[in-house]
Amino acid sequence: MKAKKLFATSMVAFAAAALLIGCGSKESKTKESDSGSKALDELNVMFVPSKNPDDIVAATKPLSGLLQEELKKEGVEVKNVKISVGTDFQAVGEALSSGSADVGYGVPGGTYAVYKDETEVILTATRAGLNKDSDKAKDWNDGKPTEKLTDKVAKSYRSLLIAGPSAKGQELAKKVNAGEDLTWDDLNGANWGLAAPTSSAGYIYPSLWLNDNVKHNITELKSTVQNDSYGSGFARLASGQIDVLPVYADARSDFADAWTKEYGKKDIWTETNVIGVTVPIYNDAILVSKKSDKMDDKVKEALQNALINMAKTDEGKKVIAVYSHSGYEKATDSDYDTEVKAQELMKSQTKK
């Protein structure tokens, strides 16, 4: 009896101790949650190569420290922010899809549309508006620079089909500036330099333009080359290797110096002409990977606030200037529904 009594007493004591330990553990988790703090060993941020990769690397070098500082204010401490640049747009999408990248920076809507099941939109970029925004190609060909307006912010932009200084490029430009419509034979007879198939400005919207204007799509062009960046595209345009280059609307402003100093030409505004203008495209997005176990609601909200606030600082403005971003606004997947529809149209065109 004494043994049974002793055993029962021990079990009661054990149960009481276990209950106290359980309560203590639960209380500790609550305190951790209430503190609002979160620690991450590393955050992998990958930029798309919509500008020269070397320029992006140089410009975004301060981002690690700036983002760490702003995230800390939001209750998320990151030991290391790793910055990299994808080899092309698809590489960034693949990295986000696999979870090897946590954040995709400056991602075009077209790339998001391809990888929408594995990614989530958290921000969209704002840019300075431009002094030109006409649907008519020849209105862009006054020989004067396309300038950014400091008092105008835009959430969308255009893709322009730029004809270069080659004989074929000048032939197309002459026809457009005379008020004549280009035919499929005109366009199909040119050498085109294209971005990756997920690029909105460099591929998708130009294909929609072709579909709307000459009832053909970009995959039907007989002579194309894929550029790994807009910089390499402009280099090919300047040398005459290609006749037509689809780019974002203020690309010539960004490459005006390189046009003369690196590519050996005289003046980008008189040696190139716009031969096509697409419908407006929603600005670049900042995406997070659904495959990343770091991306809970707290971290996503912290990232949104941190990048919005960073973009308001003098140091942050210098970093995001490489993409011509002026700031960021919170966004959701539904903001890019038009991009998804455009991608679906691209798929239907490819099957024809």
Rank of each mutant, 00 (worst) to 15 (best):
V45S: 03
L221S: 02
S348Q: 14
V279E: 10
V279M: 05
Y230E: 10
S232G: 01
V277F: 10
L210V: 04
T146G: 07
G316C: 03
E339R: 04
A167F: 00
S229N: 09
Y112S: 06
K26L: 15
A91L: 08
G65L: 03
S25C: 11
V225R: 11
H325F: 14
Y203Q: 09
E32V: 00
D335Y: 11
E344V: 11
W140Q: 14
K215T: 06
G109S: 12
I281D: 01
L40R: 08
F234N: 05
K174R: 08
I204P: 00
L40H: 05
L20P: 09
Q226S: 14
T350K: 15
E329I: 15
S25W: 09
G179M: 00
E180A: 14
V81G: 06
D54S: 12
A285M: 08
S253H: 07
A16W: 08
M346I: 15
R252Y: 00
S64C: 01
Y115K: 01
A8S: 12
V214E: 04
E74C: 06
K38N: 03
W184L: 09
K152W: 06
D54E: 14
T219K: 11
Q226E: 12
E180L: 07
T350S: 14
A13Q: 11
N44C: 05
N273H: 13
A154I: 02
G22D: 12
S35R: 08
K168S: 13
L172V: 05
K26G: 09
D117E: 15
L96D: 02
K155D: 13
G75V: 07
V299T: 15
W259Q: 11
A16G: 10
G169L: 10
A18E: 03
K155P: 00
K29M: 15
A173V: 01
D41N: 13
A113I: 10
E262P: 02
D54W: 01
K51F: 13
K51I: 02
V92M: 05
W140C: 11
T124I: 02
K116L: 01
D142Y: 11
K2N: 12
G164Q: 14
Y112C: 03
A59C: 05
S199K: 09
S10K: 08
D41P: 00
L307M: 15
W269G: 02
V225G: 00
K38F: 01
K2L: 12
R127Y: 02
A195W: 04
K300V: 09
